[in-house]
C-alpha cells in the first residue's frame, strides 16, 4: 500500500472489516478553508461501530477543524461528509446530536459548581407531574446516573458533590457516560487525556474501551501516540492540514506511529542542528531513513 507523491491520505484505503454496512461516519476527501487559509484538505476518515478511530497530529495540524466539521460546529467546504452513507451538512451541534454524534470537549463538558447528577442530566432533565407543578424527578435521575456511571465502571461516593471537586479524569468519564446514556452512536473525544496525569489518562482510556465495547464508534483525538495505540483500531495522522498516514492497527507499529507524530524527517534535521550544540549526544538518535515507514513514502513538505 504505497502512496504516490503529491497526493495525500485520501486515497489510502481503509481496511476496516467489510461487513456490507456503511460506516457510521465517513469523510471523503473532505476539506475546510477559512477564507484563503486552507485548514484541512483531502481528508478521509471512517468510523465504524465498536471501533476506535484515532486522529493524531501536532498543534495546528487540523485536528480541531476535523472534529468541528463532524460535530456540527463548522461546515466542510470541499469533499463529502456522510452519516450512515447519506451526505450531510450540519449547521448546529444539535443536528449532530440528533444523529447520535456526541462530542466531549476537553473543558466544555460540565458546569463545575453543579452536583454530579445535575450535570449528568443537564439539558435533558427527567420530570414528573403536570405542568404547573412539573418538577424534577430527582430520585430517578440520581438512580439512573448512579447506574449508568457504574455500568461504565465509575463509582462515586456522593452524587451530590459538585462535579468540580472530581478529578479531571473522572469529569471526562462522567461526560463520556452521559454521552453514552443519551444515545450517542459516535463519540468524539477531544484530547481527553491532554491535561491528565498518567494514572488519570489510564482511567479515561479504560472508559474509551468500555464505550467501544458497548458498540459505539469512537473518534479519539490526541497527540499522544502511546495513548492512541493502547485503544485504537485505526490511526490517522494529520500534518499541516493533510492526511500523512491512515493505517489500521496491523499495518503500523507504535514506533512508526510515534515517528510519524514527531514528524520523522523533521526530527532528523533537528538532529543535525542539535549536533552543533555542545553536550548533546546525537550518535544514538535515528537517521532520517530509519524514520520513514512504508505507508507514507510520499515525502516532501506536505
Amino acid at each position: 500500500m504505497t502512496n504516490e507523491a503529491g497526493t495525500h491520505g485520501a486515497i489510502l484505503q481503509d481496511t476496516a472489516p467489510e461487513n456490507g454496512d456503511h460506516p457510521l461516519v465517513e469523510l471523503r476527501n473532505a476539506g475546510k478553508s477559512y477564507g484563503n487559509i486552507r485548514a484541512l484538505h483531502g481528508v478521509g476518515l471512517q468510523v465504524h461501530p465498536g471501533r476506535v478511530t484515532c486522529v493524531l497530529g501536532d498543534n495546528g495540524a487540523g485536528k480541531s477543524t476535523l472534529i468541528k466539521i463532524v460535530s456540527g460546529l463548522h461546515q466542510h467546504t470541499e469533499g463529502e461528509f456522510l452519516v450512515d452513507g447519506e451526505p450531510v451538512r450540519f449547521s448546529t451541534p444539535r443536528e449532530a446530536l440528533d444523529k447520535g454524534i456526541a462530542t466531549v470537549y476537553q473543558d466544555l463538558a460540565v458546569v463545575p459548581l453543579m452536583p454530579v447528577w445535575r450535570n449528568f442530566f443537564l439539558g435533558s432533565e427527567m420530570t414528573k407531574g403536570p405542568w404547573p407543578v412539573r418538577r424534577l424527578d430527582i430520585e430517578r435521575m440520581k438512580k439512573t446516573a448512579d447506574q449508568e456511571l457504574r455500568n461504565m465502571g465509575i463509582v462515586l461516593d456522593d452524587l451530590e458533590q459538585p462535579i468540580g471537586t472530581l478529578s479531571g479524569g473522572q469529569r471526562q468519564c462522567v461526560a463520556i457516560a452521559r454521552a453514552v446514556y443519551f444515545g450517542a452512536r459516535v463519540l468524539i473525544l477531544d484530547e481527553p487525556t491532554a491535561a491528565l496525569g498518567v494514572k488519570q489518562s489510564g482511567v479515561v482510556l479504560k472508559y474509551i474501551a468500555a464505550a467501544r465495547d458497548r458498540g459505539l464508534g469512537v473518534i479519539f483525538i490526541t497527540h499522544n501516540p502511546h495513548h492512541a495505540y493502547m485503544v485504537g483500531d485505526h490511526f490517522s495522522v494529520l500534518r499541516l492540514g493533510t492526511m500523512e498516514l491512515s493505517a489500521s492497527r496491523d499495518q503500523v507499529s507504535l514506533e512508526e506511529l510515534t515517528n510519524h507524530m514527531a514528524g520523522g524527517a523533521e526530527l532528523a534535521s533537528l538532529k543535525h542542528e542539535l549536533a552543533q550544540v555542545r553536550g548533546v549526544d546525537v550518535d544514538r538518535l535515528p537517521e532520517a531513513e530509519e524514520l520513514t515507514v512504508p505507508a507514507a513514502t510520499g515525502e516532501g513538505k506536505s
Binding site: A109, V111, P112, M114, T127, L136
Partner: peptide, 28 residues
Amino acid sequence: TWVLLRTKYGNWIFAVGGNKESARAVGV
C-alpha cells in the same frame, strides 16, 4: 426556592450562571 431546586428552569439558572458554554453545548 422550589423553582430553583426542583424544576428544570432552576437547573438551567445554575447552569447558565456556572458555565454558559457548557450549558449551551448540552442543549440548555
